[in-house]
Write a protein that binds this DNA or RNA. Structure first.
Lengths: 229, 229
DNA sequence: CCGTCACTGCGAACAACGATCGCAGAGGAG
DNA sequence: CTCCTCTGCGATCGTTGTTCGCAGTGACGG
């Protein structure tokens, strides 16, 4: 297995000057994903978009998974980090979360990227910003890292839940609600039935879900241990 | 697009009796995934394992995605729900989380399943159990649903972080740590550098990470609003 | 009982994919 | 200048998801 893409030189230094760059190939792939979803990103299509041969792509990336890794990090690079710190750590993290969510919403295919290969340079920049927001808290570094991970997971969950991956026909979603209702009606799930029948609106229905849920997650993680110091 | 698999009859009632069942095909697919990961589950391999033709599988499922949906729900069906309720809602949810985590650990390919198609019957059973644990809390049903979703997301995150998806050579993971260290050493990420250099051990290092993190998430979500009533 | 029609199994085939091989040419190092 | 590494990439390979259409099965209705 090759070394991490982030550790490898892009250019060897000998031989002809490459006609393209990782950034160029990544951008073409991102454009394809934005248009047709992650599955639309094939090596042949990316190569055609760049104006090269599919086999040439393997000079730039090890495999398709690596290309997807480049794409994900490139997109995270769109997160707007040029903001002055907010009034406190919580507000700062929530603002960062909004900036991150904006990016995921612009690139819904990101929800289809299986996490797992570590962080690229842009993701590390975002994490640095989050760590900076938490720098005044007297909690272990491990807790801060966990908090960042959960912040990201929460955003993904909420973007996913709001249907940022659109169902073209809406039929499946309706079918699912139909299924839930039939399960509830069958009588073996009284709590589900109660939940579906609950007329109570969510607290602050006009409030952004991210603004409601994320602060609770974060204060749960940090506040009981968090000491501004 | 076909209706949700959960809404469709398995057997039409006319014509020859099918030689296999959804459950049988799903089990074969799960076995393949357990052995070789999700990518090892091809329609041909599943068909061969069942003893039928690849084309025949399309009589049982609409496509491969639907098969994966069946697999995921089948595996969630392994979650042990036959436990008396714990002392309180929090302990009950944490116990449920442990049972869920055990299942994810047994089937690490579940981390590669892109969420999104709604819940199958087994997943609804698990959600029912979680709703039951929260039934005494005076919070809106929407909050309870969100809590369940975040409980699941937290488990997945932690299982993923503990490396439940093994890197066969370990080389990539080492490469990533190398990269993080080099970024920190480059000087543009002082908070990351501080975090990597932090000698403070995580709180209660002998404690299960799930036991440390999840109660904080849950109480953050529910406790400030939660009223046992 | 018979005819009709929906259903089942599935081989053959198709289009598409990820990835490799090997050739020709470019360019750095000694 | 020679050698060797690097770049571009067509052709090719093995594999994949999926569809078509044929032969046979069994329910339904007259």
């Amino acid at each position: 297995m090759a070394r991490s893409i982030w550790l490898r030189q892009e250019r060897a230094g000998r031989g002809p000057v490459p006609e393209h760059s990782r950034a160029e190939i990544t951008a073409a792939a991102v454009a394809l994903a934005d248009e047709g979803g992650l599955a639309a990103v094939s090596m042949r299509k990316v190569a055609a978009a760049v104006g090269t041969g599919a086999a040439s792509l393997y000079r730039y990336v090890e495999n398709r998974d690596e290309l997807v890794e480049l794409m994900a990090d490139a997109v995270v690079g769109e997160v707007d980090l040029d903001r002055p710190p907010a009034v406190d750590w919580l507000a700062d993290l929530v603002e960062l979360a909004h900036a991150m969510r904006a990016v995921y919403r612009r690139h819904p295919w990101m929800l289809d990227v299986v996490p797992g290969r570590g962080l690229g340079p842009n993701a590390i920049d975002v994490m640095e910003r989050a760590l900076g927001a938490m720098s005044g808290l007297d909690v272990p570094a491990a807790t801060k890292m966990e908090t960042f991970a959960l912040l990201n997971a929460t955003i993904l969950l909420l973007v996913r839940a709001e249907g940022a991956v659109p169902d073209p026909t809406g039929e499946y979603a309706r079918g699912h609600l139909e299924f839930l209702a039939s399960v509830a009606a069958a009588g073996r799930h009284p709590h589900l039935a109660a939940a579906l029948a609950d007329p109570t609106p969510p607290p602050d229905p006009g409030q952004d879900l991210l603004d409601r849920v994320l602060p609770r997650v974060l204060t749960g993680l940090l506040d009981t241990n968090g000491r501004t110091g």
